[in-house]
Each structure stands twice: as C-alpha cells, then as structure tokens.
Design a protein around this nucleic acid. Structure first.
Length: 1110
RNA sequence: ACCUUGGUGGUGAAAUUGGUAGACACGCAGGACUUAAAAUCCUGUGGGCAGCAAUGUCCGUGCGGGUUCAAGUCCCGCCUGAGGUACCA
C-alpha cells in the first residue's frame, strides 16, 4: 500500500473534527501551557506559503507539550476590524461585514488543510459584538483610570482627589462651578482621553493614524501622504507607562532586536533641564503665564543630556514654533524671524525630512545669560530643533555636537573648546571618553563626574533639575473610519464626554449601507444621524460617581490631608447628580461639619473601626447627600450607615427614617441602620454586617440601581483603531463565551501568561507595546494577576517570494530571453511564477494570461527555451510571485508541507520560498512509511491494513535502542529550543538508519512514530492505526529518554599535532591520561608529525580530543 | 549617522560550553532495476596538487590583525547583506 497522503489527511482531519480531538478544557488539575500565534487579518488575498510558517512552529510546540502531558491552550482567531478590512471592502464594493465573513471562511478552510490543532470552539473575532463588548469595557476601565506616579500604578480615577497634589488644580474648576471644567481637568489624567492636538492625518484614507502607522511621512498601508492636522482625538496615555514598559523589558524572553526596537521607540534620555535667563530688554516676558511651572520666572528652559558641556554653550536655539519666539524677538529682527517661521510652517513634514542636510535659521536679536559665566549668548531659531521633543529649545554646544557645530560654522558663531587635548578645528567631538577643560568648577573631570557635579550645582542654584525625557508619544486612539469598535462615549449638551455604563455594552456598530467620510473630517458614523442622536438614561452610579461629595477637598477633613483654600463646596456637580440646590447644600455641609466635631459614643466606636480604609473601603462620616446627612457613607459602593440615637425612637421618627431610606434607595443608595445599643455592645456583628453588605454591593455586576436621568446625547462618531481588539485577545481565548466578564479571574490565573507567542516582527512597537500597556492596566486594577502578557516571544522570519521576469523589447510585442536581453532595449515585466518551470517560461500558458493579451507575442529564445529573470521580493499579488499552500498540499500533502517549511532553515530567519528541496522531505516521508507498511501489498490485498503492516514484535537490540534514544534526545532538545530544521534532519537520519538496518521492530518504530506527531500528525495517526492501535496517537505519551542507554565506554579521539588533526585513536573513557599519552606518542602517524621534536605539552580533554604540542 | 542581526560548498543549511568544519537535504555525475518512464536503491560530490589506486598533502567559514595547545565560535579594526530608528539635544 502506497503512501496516499491526500486520502489520509482528509480522513484524519475529519476524524479529529468529529471527535473534538482539539477541544481544550479549563482543567485546573493539569499543568498548563499557552502557545499563541499572532492572529491574522483576514485579508482578501488568502494565505500564501509565508503565513503558515509561524503557525506550523507553534503547532509543533503545542502538540509536543500535549504529548508531554500538558493541558495546552493553542487557539486561533481573527483580527477582523481595522483599516485593511475596510479598504478591501471599499475596493471590492462590498460591505466589510460580508467580506470579513467570507475571508474568514476562506482562511479557516486553508488553515484546516494544514492540520493545525486549534480548538475552534474558542475562536475569537474582534468584530464580533460579544467580543468587542469587552474591548469597549476595557476602554472604559482606561477611561475611568489614571496613572498614579506615587504608587507607580494604575488606579481608579476617583483616587486622584485623595492622592495629593496632581489634581489640585481642580479647585479652580470648583470655583467656576463647572462640571465641564472638572471633566476637562480629569481628561488630563485619564488613561484614555480626548485632546485637541496635531495628528497624523491621511487625506487619502480619510483618517488619523498612530505614529507607528506612519513611515517616512506616508501611511504604512497604501503609502498615502500624511500631514499634520489639528483635531480633537482620543489618545491612550501610554507615556505614563514609559519607564515601566522599559524596565520590565529586561526580564522578558524576547528577541534582542525587538527589545531594542521597543527601547528606541520609548527613547529614554537622562539629563537635565536648565533655565537660561533672557536679557531683560523685554519687560513683559516675566508676565507671561506660558513659562514652565517648575521654573516659573522668565527664561528659556532647555533639555540636555550633557550638562557637563554647560561651559561650551555659545548660543541657544529655539524651535521656530516655540512660544517665546515672538516675545523675545527684537524689532529689527522681527521681519527676518517671521519670514523664517513662515517658510518652515508652510513646509510639510515630508519636505522637512527631505532636506535634513541644509542648514537654516534666523537670529532673534535677543540674548540669554549664561547661568555660570554671566556671558550674553545669542538666541537663534532653527528647524533642526523640534518643538515636540524636550522643551523645544536647546543650549548649543558646537564643540560637542555635530549639528550645533555645523550651525555655528554656517552662521559664524563662536565655538569654544571645552575638551582637553581635543582638536575641534574640523569637526565636533561627541566622544564621551574625554576630559573637560576650560570649565570652571568642572575642569579636569571626566564626562561622568562633570555631569553629576554640574547638575548638583544647577539644582543648588535652582536654575534647573535632573530630568528624564521620553521620545514616545501618547498613542492616537481615534479613527475616522467605519469598520471598528464604536466608543462607549456620548456627549451632553455642553459637549462634555460621558461614558456609558457596563450595562449599555456592547454598543453595537450600526449597519451602514455606505461608509464614506462624514462632514468636517468626521468618520462615516457621523452620517448615521439616527444613531448619533440618542436619548439615554444615565445612572448616577456611572462614571459620574467620581466625586459625589465635597468631602475629599473639604476643609478640616484630616483623613485626606489636604487643606483646601476654598470653603466653597462642589455643588454644580452635586446638583446634577443629587438635585440639591446650592444654598441648602452649603447649609448642610456646615451642619455636617459641626456634627463631626461632636460625635456620639456609638459614632466614634464605629468611626474608629472603619476609618483609614480599615475594611478595605473608604468611609466618610457626616456626609451630605440629597437633603440629608448620612452618619457614615461608603462612596465606592454607595452605602449609607445610619445610627439611630435616643432621639430616633418614637414612632414618627421611625416613619421618617423609613421614608428617608426609601428615597435614598430610589436614587441609588443602600442604607443600613443600627441602633446605638447595637454598635456599642455588638460592634463586631455590626462590622461584619457592613462588610458583607459592601461585598454584595461592590461585586461587579449588581451595582445598585441608580437614579436615572433621561436626556439627549450625541454619540462619539470615531471608532477605535485596529490595535484595540488585538491588545487583549489572548485573554479572551481563555474564557471565550463568558458574558459576565472579559475573562474569569480563576481561569486567567490558571492559563496565566502566554508561554510562547509567535508572530512577525512588524508588530514590534505597535501591537506589542499596546498589549503590554493594557495588561499592566488590567493587572493594576486587579482584574488579572500578571502584568506582562507574553513570557517568551519568537519572531518568525518572512518567507519572501521568488519573482520571475520576462523582457519585452520596448514598443513591440516581442519578448527576449534573459541571456540575450543585453542586446535590446527592454522593459522588465513580472510574470506569474506558476507558469514558469524553474526559469523556463511556459510559452503557451504565457499567451493565455491577462485575457490573451500576449496571444500574438513573439519570442527570441536561447537554446530553444525562454529563460526568465529572477528576484527575491516580498510575496505579493502584484508581483505574481504568490505561492498558495493549497497547491503545495494538493501535490505533496500537508505533512510534507509542514515539515518542508520547517526544514527550510531556522525559524527566525527570512528566506525566499523555493520548492526545490521539497522532494527530499516528501521522499523521507515515503521512506518512513515503508518502515511500517509493505509498499506492494495494496495490489494484492486492497484495504486489508493489518496485513499491510510489516511491523514485528521482535526485541530491539542494544544498538537500536541507543540510536532510538539518541533520536529522542535530539528531537526533545530541538523542539524545546525551536530548532525545527535540525529535528527534521534527525528524522531523516533515524529513518535512514532504520532502513539500512532493515529494522521493523515495534519497540523502536512506535516510539519514533510518537516523536513525529508534532511534525506530521496525519501520517502518524494513519501508521499508528495501521500497526493496530485503537486510540488516537495525539494522546500518546512522548517517549521518555533513558540517558543510561547513551553512555559510551569508548571514544574515538581525534588526535591533533600542533592543533591540526592528523589521526584518530580509540580509547576507553575511563582510561588514564598517562596511559593514553603513552599510546598516542607511540603512534606511527603521531611520531611522523612530531618529527623527533621534543614534547612540550600534552593536551587531553576527556571525551573530546587530544592535542600534542611539540 | 546610530542600533540590532547576519555573511560557511553549485543551492537551503549543520556545528549545545572554543575541541574532527560542511550533518541533513537539494542539485549534479555515474550506476542498478525497467522494453521505457515513474518510483526505488547504490556510489561519488568544498577547492588545488600528487597518484592507476588505496591514499597522501596543502588551502579553505566576508577581509586584515590578535588571544589560545586549539578560533566558524572570543577580542580589535574594516567590507558587506537584511531589518529598525533618524536633525531626539
């Protein structure tokens, strides 16, 4: 019976399907392993042979771990939202929902043919409302959180009021009585926030792009021009995580190059910010509000990484857009400066990039005062200083910086030398291994020492401070596109953003027939006016529960340690929520304050037991709510504790209390009542009751029904970018059908981090940074237990295409073969690789392509053949070099395809696709097959498998066992190190060995077969069943390595004389060196090479080699 | 310009810690089986020189130095491919 791979593969794929062979249970009792692929965009082109490379590698690893007894999570899904899907839909004139669905079907069909062990019941699609409900939910977590630099953690936005200084400005907002002002201030802290800013606007795509989606001034997708445009956009405050993203990188098992890319992207530089005073010829400079908070008086703040070069400063350069330029420019210089500003601002980013070498600038006429020498130094503007980095101003040190040097030379500025024994006549010296000179108190010091002392001095004189700068910017999170997650955000009549609540999710993407851009740079959703205009019930316990109380900012609230300068309480904010008018609010607040100072015995007992977060929740006492004052109040779960004193006992009082309770209930508060007696005598019971009530209330889902206010809102019409859904998908696979939460914590604790993540390097700074940030956020907020998503990451190399060319003689229909093309003036034209055999063009097929465009073509041949040119390029449709895996599988089978892709070379290496070697792998599988099955039997005994098997039950010899265990060791080692190319070699080696020995013994073959499962699962299942097994081989146990079988007692030593290997000699491994030395020196060949010279040294490395030195 | 990686036969590539360079495969050459083909199997295959041959011998991991008994592997300088970043102070 021959190896009929097509039949076998179909059969077992169906079998695995029917038996749910790849279904993964959340079985906490087993050790886990999480193997993840970067999920694909389901593009219209389908898979080419380059895509599955990483999938095959992860599949091998996942299957291996399963054979080793692990519970392996190895899922697959689709990154279905985003620009490419929408672009494809527009190009093909279909709705993205349709194309996405069709494309996903096609991908699944193609993936299915390769025989991957995905558990499809866990498939996720980012465009599925059941999925993006949680993307939106996580967005709300980001929106409702801020980064507390003191705790270095993400915290709920509420904590900002108690955190000390950062939101101190909010007091000004209070004074203004403006909810919108508070909201405006909070936007400066939220992790997802909206801001008016310059963005990368791509007119052709009609949308904003993130920094990493823009390459050299054009869009990554499509290569369209990108310009800067001022727009109100959503951002993710990833800069807050800069330091953490940087430091935790060290512990991750990522490729070094990728870590380096992330480090570059984050771009940390350590140095100092230094203030240079401006010669006070301009009196109004000191009145401007625009100067930096840290150094509020007049002056220019510069950022430098080389404070040691402070004495080399001979001029200052500002970015042309710098806000001080107009203030300091003298009247004489004004025309020149304005002219320069006009030129630079009119130029696009791209033009600026193109002219990096030309030196330009303009003198402002103003002078700064050197902080140490007191010397006046000129202030210039130039576009080589970027407004967006550092402070937008530099202190120029021409002797130490090439650009400053070039600038100084060009404009004839002074170039003082502050380096000892360094010649700067020709060029600047940026070497850091120099000694500083001519620099007052830092002369004769090294760069490092000088830096430290200079900063110390700067800080001492309060003219600057140590400062760390990051190149990374916050990530743009808005897209003016249709095919993405809608934001769970609405705007009220003042345009203030209001977040939807959990129960409003998912906010589904409305179906639109057309999705062309909306008005005023808005996205397509702006056209859906019915959807944009909405009446909603916004509950009081939504995002607006931020600060229902004046307490944290109130006077005398020792708990918070903030002394407010204002006595006026928040009320407009309160008004909106609590419907309390301003005057009674103030009266109540005053009453509450008095109450706090004269508390009853019960109140103080309870206060002592609850204060300072003692039960894990913050409590306030005598807190004004509605028209009442609550004795104790837990803001986070809206629980009110009332203590009924002596004067609360009569009947009318009781009725009053009850009605009060029910009103409070109605507007969303829970009320617990205790008597004085209970509190004084049974305080423990009381605390327990409170704790359990809090637990009940603070459990995520059943938040108390708030007061619902129906009002009119406008929806956000931007959608989220492609990376939103992919930032957390690894979590959803763990618990894909949960409708209560994005992923149950018990389950995410079990599956934990991704053990191995395989994907392309193109996501190095985008997706990977964002998902690391989201992970840290979810971790800090307590939703998951780890703050890095991926433990180990592997970048598989790209498989490029090998393109073929034909050469058309210009303006003719004549084609000339490659070898002769030099004689003609030709155009190079890509020709489809499928009609080229090696390099020889199939002329008949060529005439038929492109609707017979070349039907009448004439050819100039060499040796009767048309030879094509070749080039290695990215595999793409337009280059006609795409090889479809389906075709390869049809011809050789999935097992051959899988093994060949691995055999091609190391996983991380990029290589062109070349079908040349595939025969060798296919031959190996056929040879392997013949170890188990009699090749001719099919002719005689069709269908009788048992008879076909030629596997015997003989006992394996010691030699056979030894080679088996050598094999096991090699395969095991290679898989664990992702060196799959060499494991394929090992399979060939053992197969050749067993064939030569004519060994068909079950004892050996069965074990080898199991090791083959990860690589070639179909043939393994078939042979497993042919040799009589009734269960699937997928659950077999990986052979256990017996090292004792590998122990050798002799070794064939290479013997070298003077390091050159001359002969081999076999010795027992336990032989003594003296023994060996004697025999070696007696050896004829050794003697010959020693040539009677005296022995100098005898080098003997046990089990390795022998070297004789003369 | 800077950072990260690579550079080994005709080709894809092997070579855990410095220890017999070129495993395994493709291709090529020759042979066996066959009427023939496919399939399969066997032999050879880094280069030069010597020899009928077994074999011997010299050279050989981008280039030039160095460390070492021993270097593809470690160090210094350069050339070059790929990827990334780029007036980032």
């Amino acid at each position: 019976m021959q190896y009929n791979f097509n039949e076998i593969e179909k059969k077992w794929q169906a079998y695995w399907n029917e038996n749910n062979s790849y279904k993964v249970e959340n079985d906490f009792s087993k050790p886990k392993c999480y193997v993840l692929d970067m999920f694909p965009y389901p593009s219209g082109a389908g898979l080419h042979v380059g895509h599955p490379l990483g999938y095959i590698a992860s599949d091998i690893y996942a299957r291996y771990k399963r054979l080793k007894g692990f519970n392996v999570l190895h899922p697959m899904g689709f990154d279905a939202f985003g620009l490419p899907a929408e672009q494809y839909a527009i190009e093909t004139g279909q709705h993205p929902a349709t194309t996405t669905k069709v494309n996903i079907e096609r991908y699944k069909e193609q993936l299915g043919k390769i025989g991957f062990c995905y558990d499809w019941s866990r498939e996720v699609k980012t465009s599925d409302p059941n999925y993006y409900k949680w993307t939106q939910w996580i967005f709300l977590q980001l929106y409702n959180s801020w980064y507390n630099p003191k705790t270095n953690k993400v915290e709920k936005i509420e904590t900002i009021f108690d955190a000390g200084c950062p939101m101190s400005d909010v007091r000004n907002a209070e004074r203004d009585n403006q909810t919108s002002t508070i909201e405006h201030r909070l936007m400066e802290y939220r992790l997802a926030y909206k801001k008016e800013s310059y963005v990368n606007w791509c007119e052709a795509l009609g949308t904003v792009l993130a920094n990493d989606e823009v390459i050299n001034g054009v869009s990554e997708r499509g290569g369209h021009l990108v310009e800067r445009k001022l727009m109100s956009q959503w951002f993710l405050r990833i800069t807050a995580f800069a330091e953490r993203l940087l430091t935790s990188l060290d512990d991750l098992d990522f490729p070094e190059s990728l870590k380096e890319m992330q480090r570059n992207w984050i771009g940390k530089s350590v140095g100092a910010e230094i203030k240079f005073d401006v010669r006070s010829q301009i009196s109004d400079l000191s009145n401007t509000d625009k100067t930096d908070n840290q150094h509020p008086s007049s002056g220019i703040n510069v950022f430098t990484t080389r404070p040691d070069t402070i004495f080399g400063v001979s001029f200052i350069v500002l970015a042309p857009e710098h806000e001080l330029v107009n203030l300091i420019t003298t009247t004489e210089q004004k025309p020149a400066v304005e002219e320069y500003q006009k030129i630079t601002s009119s130029r696009s980013e791209r033009e600026r990039l193109a002219e990096t070498k030309t030196i330009s600038g303009s003198f402002t006429g103003a002078y700064a005062i050197h902080p140490f020498t007191g010397k006046e130094i000129p202030i210039w503007i130039s576009e080589y200083v970027l407004a967006g980095y550092g402070t937008g101003a530099i202190m120029a040190v021409p002797c130490g910086d090439e650009r400053d040097y070039a600038f100084a030379k060009h404009f004839n500025l002074e170039i003082p030398n502050i380096f000892k024994d360094v010649d700067i006549a020709e060029k600047a010296c940026s070497d850091k291994n120099v000694v500083i000179a001519n620099s007052d108190f830092i002369s004769d010091l090294s760069v490092k020492e000088a830096s430290k002392i200079a900063i110390d001095k700067i800080e001492e004189r309060k003219i600057g401070s140590r400062k760390v700068n990051y190149r990374m910017r916050d990530a743009g999170f808005s897209r003016q596109r249709y095919w993405g997650e809608p934001f769970p955000i609405v705007y009220d009549e003042h345009g203030t953003a209001i977040a939807l609540t959990d129960k409003d999710l998912p906010l589904e993407l409305p179906f639109l027939e057309t999705y062309s851009a909306g008005p005023n740079g808005k996205g397509p959703l702006a056209n859906a006016t019915d959807w944009v205009n909405c009446d909603l019930d916004i509950t009081s316990n939504s995002n607006l529960d931020l600060t229902p109380s004046p307490s944290p900012l109130g006077e005398g609230d020792v708990e918070h340690g903030i002394k407010s300068s204002t006595k006026k309480a928040v009320n407009s904010y309160g008004e909106k929520i609590f419907n309390t008018d301003a005057s009674s609010w103030i009266a109540l607040k005053e009453f509450a304050r008095q109450n706090r100072s004269k508390q009853t015995e019960a109140e103080s007992i309870l206060w002592e037991a609850l204060r300072n977060n003692k039960i894990g929740h913050k409590v306030r006492r005598q807190h004004a709510i509605e028209n009442y004052i609550a004795d104790f109040y837990f803001a986070d779960c809206q629980l009110i504790i009332e203590i009924d004193g002596e004067y609360h006992t009569d009947k009318s009082q009781l009725e009053y209390d009850n009605s009060r309770t029910s009103i409070l209930n109605e507007i969303g508060f829970s009320v617990l009542r205790f008597t004085n007696d209970e509190v004084v005598n049974y305080s423990e019971n009381v605390i327990a009751k409170i704790t359990s009530k809090i637990n009940e209330l603070s459990h995520p889902s059943p938040k108390g029904e708030g007061k619902r206010v129906r009002s009119h809102f406008l929806r956000e019409t931007d959608t989220m970018p492609g990376y939103a859904g992919s930032s957390w998908y690894y979590l959803r696979y763990m618990d894909p059908h949960n409708s209560e939460t994005f992923c149950d914590k018990k389950i995410s604790d079990y599956w934990n981090q991704v053990d191995v993540y395989i994907g392309g390097a193109e996501h190095a700074v985008g997706h990977l940074l964002y998902s690391r940030m989201w992970c840290k956020t979810l971790h800090d907020l307590g939703f998951i237990s780890y703050d890095e998503p991926y433990k180990k990451l592997i970048n598989q190399g790209m498989i490029g295409g090998s393109s073929r060319f034909v050469y058309r003689i210009k303006n003719t229909n004549q084609f000339v073969s490659k070898g002769l093309k030099e004689n003609y003036d030709t155009n190079e034209i890509h020709v489809d690789v499928t009609i080229v055999d090696g390099y020889e063009l199939d002329l008949e097929a060529f005439k038929k392509i492109k609707n017979n465009e070349y039907a009448n073509a004439a050819f100039i041949l060499e040796d009767g053949k048309y030879i094509c040119g070749e080039a290695f390029e990215k595999m793409s449709k337009s280059k006609y070099n795409v090889v479809n895996p389906d075709d390869i599988i049809e011809q050789y089978g999935a097992d051959t395809f899988r093994m060949y892709e691995m055999f091609l070379g190391p996983l991380e290496m990029s290589k062109p696709w070349d079908t040349k070697g595939i025969e060798g792998v296919h031959r190996f599988l056929k040879k392997f097959w013949r170890l188990f099955v009699n090749d001719n039997s099919s002719l005689l005994e069709e269908g009788l498998r048992e008879v076909s098997s030629i596997v015997t039950n003989e006992v394996a010899t010691k030699e056979e066992l030894k080679s088996l265990h050598k094999h096991i060791k090699k395969i095991q080692h290679d898989i664990e190190n992702f060196a799959f190319n060499t494991s394929v070699s090992q399979f060939m080696i053992i197969t050749n060995e067993l064939s030569t020995l004519n060994c068909h013994k079950r004892e050996s073959l069965e074990q080898v077969l199991i090791t083959l499962v990860p690589f070639a699962p179909h043939i393994a299942e078939e042979l497993w069943s042919i040799i009589g097994n009734k269960t699937s081989i997928l659950d077999a146990q990986f052979p256990i390595l017996d090292e004792s079988l590998l122990v050798e007692n002799t070794f064939n030593y290479p013997v070298a004389i003077l390091g050159k290997s001359r002969t081999e000699m076999e010795f027992a491994l336990d032989a003594t060196q003296d023994d060996i030395q004697m025999q070696v020196l007696a050896n004829e060949i050794v003697q010959k090479w020693m040539d009677n010279k005296p022995l100098k040294k005898f080098i003997f490395v046990k089990g390795k080699m022998i070297n004789v030195v003369v």
